[in-house]
């Protein structure tokens, strides 16, 4: 033992870490919005009985769920530029990989949530003269989203954790900044400890909130139905 912990050099670079944290939040926000909205589209396509919609959506979901997200990011960063006539920035590659991966996972959440709504709700909205699209938007989705909320917040937490993979293509986020500081000051132990704690302190309240949501759902489901 006898290692002298010294956090001072880490805090001297607090501005660099803060800059990294902004990068983390930026890519998280991009991937959350793109991933969940595209996931909803794919989920609806998966739910559809039309083969022309269902089949490509299924292939997409299976492919992106069954390959590692880091492979997807590196593919977009190193392989895609061979096919397209423009530069792929680290942010683009990482955001594409993480968003599409999250879309595939959230598509299954959306599909499951929509399927969990009783057929009676569809019949009732049809009886009121709504079209299929109207029923989906006004009756089914609002109920389904409430049920899916715990699974969706879980997805959001996963996206946040995945954002660290962007450092593999040198996108400037918290971990990437940590790497730089650690190599400048030879203090990996303090830097990575601070970063691990930062992630934990930021995400743990979200995790607790998800637990609370799950419990509340379980209670209202057993009481309400």
């Amino acid at each position: 033992m006898g290692y002298q912990w010294n956090f001072a050099p880490v805090f001297e670079h607090a501005d660099a870490l803060l800059y990294g944290a902004v990068g983390t939040l930026r890519i998280f926000a991009i991937c959350l919005v793109l991933g969940l909205s595209f996931g909803l589209v794919v989920g609806l396509m998966r739910y559809s009985r039309r083969r022309l919609l269902n089949w490509p959506a299924t292939a997409f979901v299976e492919f992106f769920r069954n390959t590692p997200v880091l492979v997807q990011i590196l593919w977009f960063y190193f392989a895609l530029p061979m096919l397209v006539p423009f530069e792929i920035s680290p942010l683009m590659a990482a955001a594409l990989g993480i968003s599409l991966n999250s879309a595939a996972f959230s598509a299954e959440i959306f599909r499951g949530g929509i399927q969990s709504i009783e057929p009676g709700q569809w019949e009732a909205s049809r009886a009121l003269g709504m079209t299929g699209l109207q029923a989906m938007r006004r009756i089914i989705l609002p109920q389904a989203i409430r049920r899916m909320l715990p699974a969706l917040t879980n997805r959001a937490i996963e996206i946040f954790k995945m954002s660290t993979l962007a450092s593999a293509v040198a996108y400037v986020e918290l971990l990437q900044q940590g790497k730089l500081i650690a190599s400048l000051n030879f203090n990996p132990i303090e830097v990575y400890t601070v970063i691990a704690l930062a992630f934990f302190l930021f995400l743990y309240p979200l995790v607790r909130a998800t637990y609370a949501l799950e419990r509340q759902m379980a209670r209202s489901d057993s009481g309400g139905d």
């Binding site: 660290t164 830097v191 400890t193 691990a196 992630f199 995400l203």
Partner: peptide
């Protein structure tokens, strides 16, 4: 709750120092 890549960096770069 913490990202696995941060954990891996901790065990690879930090733990050997400790």
């Amino acid at each position: 709750t913490t990202p696995p890549l941060v954990q891996l960096f901790w065990f690879f770069f930090a733990l050997p120092v400790l």
